[in-house]
Nucleic acid binder design. Structure first.
Lengths: 138, 138
DNA sequence: CTTGACCCTAAAGTACACTTTAGGGTGTAC
DNA sequence: GTACACCCTAAAGTGTACTTTAGGGTCAAG
């Protein structure tokens, strides 16, 4: 049995994050020993790492709660999990599109800026000021 | 001279956002007329649109404050503006890389999931559980 | 003369995932 | 026996860009 600090260290999170996950229902409240300390089985480390991996691919803690519920539900289907993943995939692709657009505009602007001269002749500020509108609005 | 609501409408933001920008120093406190209402010149609309365009390419309100300060400073150089833009460009490219990685992993997972069968045989949950580790960690 | 759309302020709330603070108990090594 | 690392709780704070709430004045139309 492990103390919270050990699980946190091995799981790669802070002790406070551990307590936060418990509070949010992502990890079950563990047994306590006589002094009131939380005592975890090594399985808890797997759980923490599950949460971290899910975060790494973009799931929020709420999403992760849903995934964990599906995981624990014998009546749930693999399709349910895949749906969540595909929905998240779409969200991420949307964010990618927005950022790619930002990148393109910024790249264009920085490439046309001579970097010499005063700000009153800065093409970037001119663009922000709408001096030569030409972008496709969303 | 325009009321705050007119500027907000023409600038494409809410009245509350206008007051927030003023509070944050992004727009100068305008004159008030006898009843205490803010009165703006049409220039204020340009300012709001500047802020919106800058947000659209990824600048935070704090960034935008810096840009506006450069814009108003006759001693500032175009290089200063370009530096900000290039820094932001790098930030955005970093975010893009993170999201692209998420997308790739999620796409792989969803493609290998049969969507049939019970969750106890779900390849996505297995992957999240670290069943067949093979990702390059950062 | 009242209805409704507008304006004002200050403060608190929202989402997200924690971290920090304040105050206090526990366990072990020297 | 005390120093130090560890554990506990509850509540408040962080950052971002607003929105919402509460409470109250202003103005034009009918």
């Amino acid at each position: 049995m492990l103390n919270i600090g050990e699980v946190a260290r091995l799981g790669g999170v802070s002790v406070e994050a551990m307590r936060y996950y418990e509070q949010q229902g992502l990890i079950a409240p563990p047994d306590r020993n006589a002094n009131g300390y939380r005592k975890y089985s090594p399985e808890a480390i797997r759980r923490i790492r599950f949460i971290k991996r899910a975060q790494d691919v973009g799931f929020t803690l709420k999403d992760i709660g849903d995934l964990l519920a599906l995981k624990a539900d014998p009546g749930a289907s693999c399709r349910d999990v895949r749906e969540r993943a595909q929905y998240k995939l779409v969200e991420i692709e949307e964010k990618l599109a927005v950022l790619a657009q930002m990148r393109d505009v910024l790249a264009k602007w920085t490439s046309t800026c001579p970097s010499e001269g005063q700000v009153n002749a800065c093409p970037i500020l001119d663009a922000l000021d709408g001096m030569h509108d030409s972008e496709g609005e969303t």
